[in-house]
Design a binder for these strands. Structure first.
Lengths: 214, 214, 214, 214
DNA sequence: TATGAATGAGTATTCATTCAT
DNA sequence: TATGAATGAATACTCATTCAT
């Protein structure tokens, strides 16, 4: 048992160090931007030498991936928390959609990473197939409240997924506009536009729900 | 006349080579991604030495600019052509929105550049302030049919702009999903989703128009 | 004779063009500095294409050489003009030495070239052996008034050459100090130092002359 | 102690490598000239890859700086050592002046750098303002024995500085002649000319000293 | 004689990654 | 586990020179 206990202990220590490096990486990404964040910079921030990082992550891209995983975990949590108290499905839809939007709108750092995530497919960024699958799953999970709300209003599975995909697309599009500041050419607040979208869909939901009740 | 003819000929040849380099650049951007597209890579693809490129373009950014210019020109043209025969405003809205979507959906090469265009502000990609302003203007122009249709249905200027911005955002979001292939997790066709969005907005337009008529 | 006349004419035209290019080169060297003066820049200034320059000069270094030749020609002239009216040898010595100094002190452009000339031997700058010999000869000629003055005071050939070499060295050293602005650390005027040197040597000359007379 | 010993050892090794790179740099500067001495060339000479150099020096200019620093340190030392035993001021003047001359005359490698040093101001070679100021100060220090000797003979501060500046200029001019081999046209030994200059000034010093004594 | 096109070697610096210790 | 050293490829851009036309 001693050996096993020791192994466990070192494992735990290793895991902690890993997370400390990730935290350092996030700090560097935040302050320097994605492009400027070199392995050396991350290592320095974490109090390590560049080479040491490779004991915890096989590559720079792996660090990106790990941060993304954590990011999307927070996203799921954030969306779920937003709908926890709401009962009416159309309300749940609205809250979930806006929570998704707000999550990225509030923190530009996350947004940058989010686009890296969404844009990850454009070119192979070095994210492994499994990691990518995991990201997809998490993404779906973050949108689960949205599609569930649709189901509750009587939409079929296909329609529910369409609702989720559309809400996602709309949010992402507006976030892009906001982030690139091209929203300025419209002289409009992206948050307001997102609310308008959520509400107009919610009204459709309501209509459905009533029909169902009848 | 001989001199002029000769000058004209060499000018034409030079222009052709310029466009061949641009085509090569597009190919490289497509296959390697924007970040990886170095002058050397472009030159290699075009069958040139790196230095030779500078005979045709003063800088790498100038190449970006030339491609973007041409791209957005085609976009504007494409959207305008789509609505040319439509009379009813709600129809014009639908056609314009879908044309915008289709333009990028059809050619992934353009889409990549489109994201560069839309995303140009995320990080400084070296686009000059004026070039950026020009892009914004062109972008607005490409969406003009959309907002004009809204005006014709009785929406005020603010609302019309909101319509354009939302349509733009929705299209961009779906294109992102399509391009990154994350749309797969929804098992839906992005084109269909775009149509649904366009139609649902068009219906709202129709309601307005009737009200107005009354 | 016609053929010969024609050849002569084209020869003259060619020579003229050569000198026009040299003038352009001087202008570029002046405004851009030695490092920045590229063949292309010179060609542009002269209204030519880079390639055309090679019909008149075999290399960039050859242009340097030609400018140096002309420069040193003006130097010789300048020194000779300075002593033309002086009769007494010690006066001739002073005037010649100061003229040498002033020639470079007055025009920083010439000075830059002068150092290029003097420094030409440090590394092979592409000046041909003959060109270099010609430069040496011209240099000696520019110092001829100095050594001749010494001879007239009764110094032997060796001593006369030593006078010339020393005056040359002193002038060059001061010019270097002036040009690099390191003279500032001494808080002294280089021209004044040069005068002091010339005078102190002139006094020695005077002593000799008198001795001789006796 | 082991840790400390190890750290010390690696530190020493690192320092050695640094000095080997500097030596290689000096060799390259000598054989290729300052302009042609690229980081790559230095690295090659030192048996390194270009990138590896940056492990030891932050920039090319830092290499220049390090070499200059060391060079001028040796110069000051050399001049001071030369006068250490001499008592009479005119003798100190002669010894210091000749030591200054000899320092550069003996090692052409140093001379090249010396010209870089003295000539640093001609064109911006990338020397920082502070580095330049430090060089000026060191330069003055190397000439201190010269001006002090003058003061001891009764010259005032201005005159003493003039003596130093003149000696410096004369030495530099002769070194330039020697180095460029243009001294050949005078068929004289530069060392002899330097001795003559030093002696003639020393005689003037002597006169002054006696006057003072009286 | 002159052009326009093209080359190829060159510049300093950065960085992800590897590996002996 | 961690370091320090090292690599090699990459970056945009410049320039003297050559050559077919």
């Amino acid at each position: 048992m001693t050996i096993s206990a020791k192994a466990e202990r070192t494992e735990a220590v290793s895991e902690l160090k890993r997370s400390l490096i990730l935290a350092a990486a996030r700090r560097v990404f935040e302050s320097e931007g994605l492009d400027r964040a070199s392995i050396r910079a991350i290592a320095r921030e974490a109090g390590y030498t560049a080479g040491a990082i490779y004991f915890y992550f096989p590559s720079k891209e792996a660090i990106y991936g790990a941060i993304l995983q954590e990011l999307i975990g927070r996203l799921v949590e954030s969306v779920e928390r937003a709908v926890v108290d709401a009962k009416k499905p159309e309300q749940r839809f609205q809250l979930a959609t806006l929570a998704f939007f707000d999550f990225f709108a509030e923190d530009p750092r996350d947004l940058d990473f989010g686009f890296y995530l969404f844009g990850g497919g454009m070119r192979p960024h070095g994210i492994s197939r499994e990691a990518d699958a995991a990201l997809n799953e998490s993404l779906l999970r973050s949108l689960a409240p949205v599609s569930e709300a649709a189901r509750q209003c009587g939409f079929d599975a296909d329609e529910a997924r369409a609702c989720a995909a559309s809400a996602f697309a709309h949010a992402v599009g507006l976030l892009l506009l906001k982030h690139t500041r091209r929203i300025r050419i419209f002289a409009l607040e992206p948050r307001v536009l997102m609310e308008m979208y959520a509400q107009s869909v919610a009204i459709q939901f309501e209509g459905r729900c009533k029909t169902m009740a009848v």
